[in-house]
Structure formats: structure tokens, C-alpha cells
Amino acid sequence: MEVTTKSMPYEDWKDNEYIESLVSELKASGTNVIVGSLDKLINWGRSNSLWPLTFATSCCGIEFIALGAARYDMARFGWEVARSSPRQADFMMVAGTIVHRMAPAVRRLYDQLAEPKYVIACGGCAVSGGPFKNSYHVLKGVGEILPVDVYCPGCPPRPEAMIYAIMQLSRKVKIEKFFGGVNRKESRKEFLKNHPVSETTN
């Protein structure tokens, strides 16, 4: 199965092996016809309607604005409905450095997102800490506190790179299962179990 999106040839994607491994994982569990086609319909809806959360901490956020503007126009793909309330967004683009003080807030935002929810680590800082890796106050990548679906490197990534990242996410959403065993839900649960939010204050 070649998972791709409109006007993007399969060969042009960079990491088809990863998607193919997901596909084979998906196929291994098997599915019946009715559920399978319902899944297809749902995935069509989900993958074509990814609403971002307006969330940005630094420079990457400005590029995210540029992504919405006329030159790059993410509205073409239906991503322009940026919701300010996490309850209504589908994915959060962690655009910018995440520091110690911000970490609980980011995690809370993630917890407030309604299922299904996805995370894109956008920019060097969110991927690994970037140029501030050695700082006493910077997380070495948002992967320390959130289960990340797509990493998008760059400092800041060009809007084209961001488009590519969200397209990758959309492709990943396409091979999910709504009914029955969802492959990525399990790994995410484990991740969240290993990174608990301690219930001490507030």
C-alpha cells in the first residue's frame, strides 16, 4: 500500500521505510471489510482536517504565521483553522524552545487536547534543544515530556519544511485504526505512564 497525499508522488517522500513498517504492522492484525472501509472514511476525514493549536514560543512561531500567509498558504490543505482552545485542535506544533518553566504548561496543553491528538516537534529547539542544548533551563527536545509524532528540523524550519512535516503527519494519520487495536495509541500510553505529572501543587 502506497500511502501518499494528493499531488505528492510516493517516491518523493523521504522516509517511506518507516511508513511501510507501520503499514505492515497494521496489516498484521487483520481487519474485516466493513470496519476497514469505515476506517478508511474516518482516516480520510482526519487526515484532511488537521487543525493546529495556535501555540508558539519563539522564532518558529513567526514562520508558522508565514505559513498561513499568501506565499505558502496552508489553507490549501485545510490546516488554516488554527484553534486557540486546545479542546478543539487536532495537533500541536511545538514551535520553539521549551524551557523548564514552560514544560508543565506544554504538558497541560497536550493533556487538554481532545483525542485523537498529535504532536509535531518543530525546529531544532523542540527536536533536541537546538543551540541551547547546554543551557540549565532548556529541555533537550520536547520528546522528553510529550510523545512526538513528527520531527521537523531547522532553525527555524522554512515554511516548506513545515508543510512537509504536516503532510507527513497527515500520511501517518491515514494508516491508523479507529476500531480495534490502534498501533500508536499503545506506545503513547506507555510514554505517558513513564512521564507522569505529579499531583502536588496547583
Binding site: T5, K6, S7, L41, I42, W44, G45, R46, N48, S49, A69, A70, D73, A75, R76, F77, G78, V81, D90, F178
Partner: peptide, 24 residues
């Protein structure tokens, strides 16, 4: 800008995709 144009011709299926997603 151009507005939705990927899902269906001229993006007319865009709101349908949104609705499917929102329903579930």
C-alpha cells in the same frame, strides 16, 4: 490566498472532512 483546494475540486469536500473528524 487560494483557500482550500486539495480535498475535492476547489476544496469543496474540505468541510466534509472537517465534519467527519469532528464527529469522532
Amino acid at each position: 490566498r487560494l483557500g482550500p483546494n486539495r480535498v475535492g475540486p476547489f476544496g469543496v469536500l474540505q468541510p466534509f472532512a472537517d465534519m467527519f473528524k469532528m464527529l469522532i
